[in-house]
Design a protein around this nucleic acid. Sequence first.
DNA 1: CTTGAAATTAGCGACGT
DNA 2: ACGTCGCTAATTTCAAG
Lengths: 175, 175
Amino acid sequence: MQGVLRDRPFRRGGGNGDISAVFDAIDRKILDVLQEDSSLPIATVAERVGLSSGPCWRRIKRLEEKGVIKRRVAVVDRRKLNLATTVFIAVKAPRHAAEWSEAFRRVIDGFPEVVEAWRLTGDIDYLLKVVVPDVAAYDGFYQRLITRLDFSNISASIAMEEMKFTTAMPTTYME
Amino acid sequence: MQGVLRDRPFRRGGGNGDISAVFDAIDRKILDVLQEDSSLPIATVAERVGLSSGPCWRRIKRLEEKGVIKRRVAVVDRRKLNLATTVFIAVKAPRHAAEWSEAFRRVIDGFPEVVEAWRLTGDIDYLLKVVVPDVAAYDGFYQRLITRLDFSNISASIAMEEMKFTTAMPTTYME
DNA sequence: CTTGAAATTAGCGACGT
DNA sequence: ACGTCGCTAATTTCAAG
């Protein structure tokens, strides 16, 4: 007898290239907790998900082995690192050739200020997220960027306010 | 005598509302390591930055106390959580009133699919980053969103490829 | 799954340089 | 400031129910 709610398990895999594995509501809760704070001792995690340490530890290990948990990282305060300014950059490629795309990838990999880069559908080709101290530093970054590669168009939007930001992915769609 | 390179320290604070604090090249290196992998034992971190465990531990503690390190989190594999699709949504507000903005904030806080929300300069007012299983699920999200609030315009771009993604902020601008 | 306990390892603090 | 040493506390593994 135990008060833990249990709903039907979720089997991933088949068409998506994922290893077949079953995760239930407890696994989801573990992920919720660990995505908020991975420094908690296992006993605390276990308590929060309604388990004792042993099985909880085993589940966490399994989530790591299956690659569901990829890594543990420290999250820093951007402002304290002198990175108060976030800029989103819409990029249009001068030509749609694999050669340009690969060069682009190499260039952005070389810039630690570029924390994200996405290839998108629609009228813009790529979206970059860039962190810099201020607008002056952004201009410096921009100058260095256009020196290293040619672009058809670049338009920047400065972030005025971070209304929401989380590294935690929802676990609601596992089922 | 020890082989650790040492350059001049960096003092933050003054105009920016930050607590005055000095960080040097070793602190930066600690942050670089911990932003990549915070599960490393302190002895390993110490070795990588050219320090022994004691002082290294002290520096990490100080970085946490100063709020430079905000938290430790687990990073999960989006695809393994059935979140293969990332969508960027450009939002135009129907009116520029604090009341709408606050309602907007409350609404997006209630959606775990919205992992980021930024208020921007330029022709679009807000940019959302949303993670969902697929385009069908995005449409479901979209329907629920427009039920909860009125918008002047919403245009979505689906991410076709994640070219770069990192939670690690550059430490190069601390000095 | 549980509890409990043993072995190992990491975290932490005091003191000396 | 760093380094060493030793105590404390946590993690990890295993056994039995």
